[in-house]
Design a protein around this nucleic acid. Structure first.
Length: 591
RNA sequence: GCGCUCGUAGCUCAGUGGAUGAGAGCGUCUCCCUCCGAAGGAGAAGGUCGCAGGUUCGAAUCCUGUCGGGCGCACCA
């Protein structure tokens, strides 16, 4: 019961009623039986914008007008009659429970306005209180296994600390993972990083330059962290580096073998890079973002996945040797040019690594792989998905979520972000200023694909007015009420009981807000979005505030009513806590 | 030039086919603590949903065009 969104229950009831109306002759059977099935399968119910119209509404009558050859109002009337019958009888052929719909009315051009039976809401709230940690998690369809999803995100090169520019991807990926897990999917969080090649060499050269007190090369890294690294080279690394040959400068020409190069630049670069990577890992942990898999680019070569990908493409005749280079014939998929996998100098392009990585990811049994990328990567989306198809994978199972730009401004002035120039704000610095909970809420509440402005000064100054505190405050207040009641020897009722019979009561309004959570989870998981969760948390907090204003909970002069309301508050706290957990935001007992 | 993407309240953003209400937060203005937590509540002002056509019972939402912003078009990493 807990894991099924209420609208499914309502939709099923409308479907039953429609079929019964046809079977009983109240509505004509379509000439084509499949047309009725299609109509039933396409039934939608939604919570109307104007809650006076009911708990749910369906437009099935308008959609079915053509197939059933009746005016929408007539169809809606026939369905409403069946729904009303079901509410007082036992569900025909069902488990013997009452139908979920208390009242069904026809309105407007043929809308079917539905109100839930109070007992159904009460039972659901009782179930929430009984197992609060299950609330917000969707049940798998009977007999089905969890869907296995790989989400790769952040994946910033370990050549410098994470910047605020990386923050959005980190939060978006983690939030998506949490939402999919709540929806019953099995998620692997993955970080892909470059551990060899040109970038790492530049890092090594920069560290060496600062160690030796000379100018950093033009393409080197200049941030303060580089100097810190130069001062922190451990003795064993220094010894090995001193014994190694100086940089040849041509390692890249040896292709991926460059990763095992043993010149001074490579040794220092690899050490510095790993140290930075470890720092990134702890920064992310502070954000509440933890990865299951850290995959290095080099391992795709040493473990043979790039070779395997090339072999498979060759077997499919998707490759071509030309001008000394190896090309993927992506023009066959509509791309405007073919793409190089291995350059004429023998080294591989990033695209080469990417195809090896796809093979590697699917070899682990994932049903779907999701890449969380910056918007600037959109040009590579089609080619990688096409390569996936050429490799024999379902194109639909490879998905790229393009996270839009964040324009960081301070006091209205845009800030440039460059690791090489050292003019960036680190993630750690941002969090010191505004806090993890506020940052998480900020990114969760905005569509990942929309560019946003982030004014750091404004975020800092307004932090106490941030909506995240509104939600947390409401939770703290709920818990406070429960504590106070216990202190006055009032305990929550064993059941919500008749508390919700009047659908206009403060209790009923709060109850309707509480039970919506599974629908929010389902929508978020389906659309790969999280802003619905923050909207929900705000709505629930608002609904609670209204209830709190209108209904005295802790009231020793009316212990029975008090007990019922306490149980409702317990359910509200469970739901608010669950939605904050979904966002990775703390739900404080007091503030 | 080609492609992708975004234009919604003073600001930051939700809403992406439904009903006599296009919402939230911040900001502005007016009120409310002898009363379960004022990090709260009640209310007000503020919008030609960039513009112009089209599709349909119905469009902020879909299509076309157009204007404006962002991004991408490497044998770079």
């Amino acid at each position: 019961m807990l894991g099924v969104p209420l609208r499914h229950t309502v939709r099923d009831a409308v479907a039953r009623a429609l079929r019964r109306a046809v079977a009983s002759g109240d509505l004509p059977a379509p000439d084509d039986a499949a047309a009725l099935d299609a109509l039933v399968a396409g039934i939608e119910v939604e919570i109307p914008g104007n809650r006076d119209h009911g708990d749910y509404a369906s437009n099935v009558a308008m959609k079915g007008s053509k197939v059933l050859k009746r005016a929408p109002a007539a169809i809606a009337t026939a369905i409403a009659k069946q729904l009303r019958d079901e509410a007082s009888e036992r569900i025909h052929g069902g488990s013997g429970t009452l139908g979920p719909i208390a009242s069904a009315e026809v309105a407007g051009p043929g809308f079917l306005n539905l109100r839930l039976r109070a007992g159904l809401l009460g039972d659901l709230l009782d179930a929430i209180v009984a197992s609060p940690m299950s609330w917000g998690h969707l049940a798998l369809a009977p007999g089905s296994a969890p869907y296995r999803v790989n989400i790769e995100f952040v994946s910033a090169n370990p050549t410098g600390p994470l910047t605020v520019g990386n923050a959005r991807g980190a939060f978006v990926g983690d939030l998506l993972a949490r939402v999919l897990e709540a929806a019953g999917q099995s998620v692997t969080r993955e970080y892909y990083f470059n551990d060899f090649g040109e970038q790492v060499r530049r890092l090594g050269e920069s560290v060496i330059a600062l160690r030796d007190g000379v100018d950093v090369p033009e393409n080197g890294y200049k941030g303060d962290y580089v100097a810190d690294l130069a001062a922190a080279i451990p003795p064993d690394v220094a010894t090995r580096a001193a014994a190694a040959p100086k940089s040849s400068g041509e390692i890249d020409a040896e292709g991926y073998n460059g990763m095992v190069a043993d010149d001074e630049v490579a040794i220092i670069g690899r050490w510095a890079s790993e140290r930075i990577r470890a720092g990134i890992e702890s920064s992310l942990a502070v954000l509440g973002v933890e990865f299951d898999v850290w995959r290095s680019e080099g391992s795709l070569y040493t473990d043979g996945y790039v070779d395997r990908a090339i072999t498979r493409l060759r077997e499919g005749n998707w490759l071509e040797e030309r001008e000394g280079a190896l090309w993927f014939k992506s023009t066959a998929f509509g791309d405007d040019k073919d793409r190089v996998i291995r350059k004429s100098n023998g080294s591989f392009t990033y695209f080469g690594s990417d195809i090896g990585y796809i093979v590697e990811k699917f070899s682990r049994g994932h049903d779907r792989v999701i890449y969380v990328w910056g918007q600037d990567h959109h040009g590579t989306v089609a080619r990688l998905r096409n390569a996936g198809k050429a490799l024999g994978f379902d194109k639909e199972s490879i998905e790229m979520l393009l996270v839009a730009w964040v324009r960081f401004v301070r006091d209205g002035v845009e800030m440039s972000m460059s690791k090489r120039a050292g003019t960036f704000i680190t993630l750690d610095e941002l969090l010191e200023e505004i806090g993890v909970d506020a940052a998480r809420w900020y990114f969760a509440s905005r569509s990942a694909t929309t560019a946003i402005d982030f004014d750091i000064e404004a975020a800092k100054e307004k932090s106490s007015d941030n909506p995240v505190y509104y939600a947390q405050y409401a939770h703290a207040r709920m818990r406070s009420i429960l504590r106070k009641a216990a202190a006055e020897s009032l305990t929550p009722a064993a059941s919500i009981g008749a508390l919700l019979d009047d659908h206009t009561s403060p209790e009923a309004k709060l109850a309707r807000a509480i039970v919506r959570l599974p629908e929010v989870v389902e929508d978020s998981a389906m659309h790969h979005e999280t802003q619905g969760v923050t909207t929900y948390a705000t709505e629930l907090a608002t609904a609670f505030s209204a209830f709190y204003r209108d209904a005295k909970v802790v009231d020793t002069s009316a212990p029975e009513r008090s007990a019922g309301r306490l149980r409702l508050v317990a359910a509200a706290a469970a739901s608010l806590s669950a939605s904050l957990r979904l966002l990775g935001i703390s739900a404080p007992e007091e503030m």
